[in-house]
Design a protein around this nucleic acid. Structure first.
Length: 210
DNA sequence: CACCAGGTTGACC
DNA sequence: GGTCAACATGGT
């Protein structure tokens, strides 16, 4: 790409893993569902729930908004925090049903982000996942893996600071943002914590000495 | 058996 | 502005 540190990291990760083609979902609204469900849990748990939702025809905006809450809790159980997640899913679906999903996704980016943040259960990361992967607008997603990986190469900050760094240094490109976040997650899952830091492909960038 | 996972919230300083 | 316990199941 270009020659800042964050561009270099992107090139190294892409070279190591190849393109990831995220977010795994059939529809934009399914991205919203997945974004909420995957909070603090593994994607395999989310897959079970999404399959169950589809089996019960609850993966559409209106049917999910009208879903029986007890059935929803059962279906969401494998994702953890299932009481909260079930009711929040319903509320979010109701919001999209009332507003019209296309009207929501076609809002200007900052307005959309703030609107998502106003929904219960949607914080910075989930809002940005929706903005980037469902509404297809250039917002860089920060998560725990991103923070950890950046800390390893000597870059720290709060959510908005880290996001600003990525968005300032990288070209404003939706596909790069999508791919970059995916690469960080997949690389971290596969290598960090198991492999030692001195085997990390980012070690040449390490300014912390570990 | 202990610990963590692609996080958010509300209470507190 | 930052920190902390709750929230809960499933996999090492």
């Amino acid at each position: 790409m270009e020659n800042g540190t964050l561009c270099r990291v992107y090139d190294l990760l892409l070279d190591e893993l190849g393109p990831q083609h995220w977010w795994p979902a059939d529809t934009a609204f399914e991205v919203v569902i997945g974004a909420l469900l995957t909070q603090q849990t593994k994607w395999t748990n989310v897959e079970k729930t999404i399959i169950g939702l589809k089996k019960n025809n609850l993966h559409e905006v209106q049917t999910l908004a009208d879903a029986d809450i007890e059935l929803l809790k059962e279906l969401v159980r494998s994702c953890g925090f299932y009481r909260q997640k079930a009711s929040r899913l319903k509320e979010i679906a109701s919001f999209f049903a009332e507003q019209g999903i296309e009207n929501v996704f076609s809002m200007p980016m900052e307005g959309l982000r703030n609107t998502m943040l106003s929904l219960k259960g949607v914080g910075n990361e989930t809002a940005d996942v929706i903005v980037l992967y469902a509404a297809n607008k250039p917002k860089f997603v920060i998560d725990a893996y991103t923070r950890r990986m950046m800390k390893c190469i000597g870059i720290e900050g709060n959510y908005m600071q880290l996001q600003r760094m990525f968005e300032t240094e990288l070209p404003e490109d939706i596909d790069i943002y999508k791919e970059y976040h995916a690469l960080i997650v997949e690389y971290s899952k596969a290598y960090c914590g198991r492999k030692r830091c001195d085997e990390c492909i980012l070690k040449e960038l390490n300014e912390n000495g570990h």
